[in-house]
């Protein structure tokens, strides 16, 4: 009898130890829930990172400081290009209608900042009409006190060599067309070419790109 009781006691002790070292059903469900939640967050986060922070994922052509996406607005665009365009340039037109060149760096490869002054200079591109617009890094217009947001084929004054120039920055630079970019944040310049000539459509790298240089330093 005593042996039987002892045997029961040992069995109970073993069961208690097993319970102590095994995970309950609810704990398992909780761990699975956390792991799957983490997996979903990782999937969403990696999508956001690819679309916002990994421009190399989207096929583009670079000319000087300017980049253009050849499949913007096109039904041939892959899902990454389509999503990137939807986030950064929704309702873009195909390149046979309009070409978009975007610059986020100057000609020396330094990121464009709104509190720095830049001189942008170039020859009118081969298109029916063109414009260069200054955007903040949220892809919306700066709150320009003079309501000047862009230079275009109508407002640009060409010099004796047939070239246009303008400056961006917090303060106006004397003698130039000025696009105010108040604040201290990222700056994005967008060159639009409406009805670009066929040879430029076929070879976007043949664009004679406007130059972008720091002019007068940073405020």
């Amino acid at each position: 009898m005593a042996a039987l009781v002892k045997s029961q006691q040992v069995r109970c002790k073993v069961l208690k130890m097993q319970r102590k070292h095994t995970v309950s059903r609810w704990q398992r469900i909780g761990i699975a829930f956390v792991l799957y939640g983490f997996a979903v967050l990782l999937g969403l986060g990696s999508a956001w990172w690819v679309l916002k922070k990994a421009p190399w994922m989207v096929q583009s052509v670079q000319v000087g400081a300017w980049k253009t996406n050849l499949l913007a607005g096109s039904p041939d665009a892959d899902i990454y290009t389509r999503a990137t365009i939807a986030l950064n340039a929704l309702l873009a037109l195909g390149r046979d209608e309009t070409m978009y060149f975007v610059a986020v760096q100057d000609d020396d490869g330094r990121p464009l900042r709104s509190h720095c002054s830049y001189r942008v200079e170039g020859a009118p591109p081969k298109a029916k009409w063109w414009s260069i617009t200054a955007y903040a890094d949220d892809m919306f217009l700066f709150d320009a006190p003079n309501k000047q947001y862009s230079l275009n084929g109508t407002t640009a004054r060409l010099d004796a060599n047939g070239r246009f120039a303008f400056t961006t920055g917090v303060q106006k630079q004397a003698g130039t067309h000025w696009l105010p970019t108040p604040g201290n944040r990222g700056l994005v310049l967008t060159l639009r070419l409406y009805n670009p000539e066929p040879d430029l459509q076929a070879a976007p790298a043949s664009l004679n790109p406007p130059t972008i240089h720091v002019f007068g330093g940073c405020a």
Binding site: Y36, G43, A47, R82
Partner: peptide
């Protein structure tokens, strides 16, 4: 299963954005 979930959520998110 977890890796597949990450990949599927990633693709679904990129597809759904536009």
């Amino acid at each position: 299963t977890l890796a597949t979930t990450v990949v599927l959520v990633h693709i679904a998110a990129v597809w759904a954005v536009p």
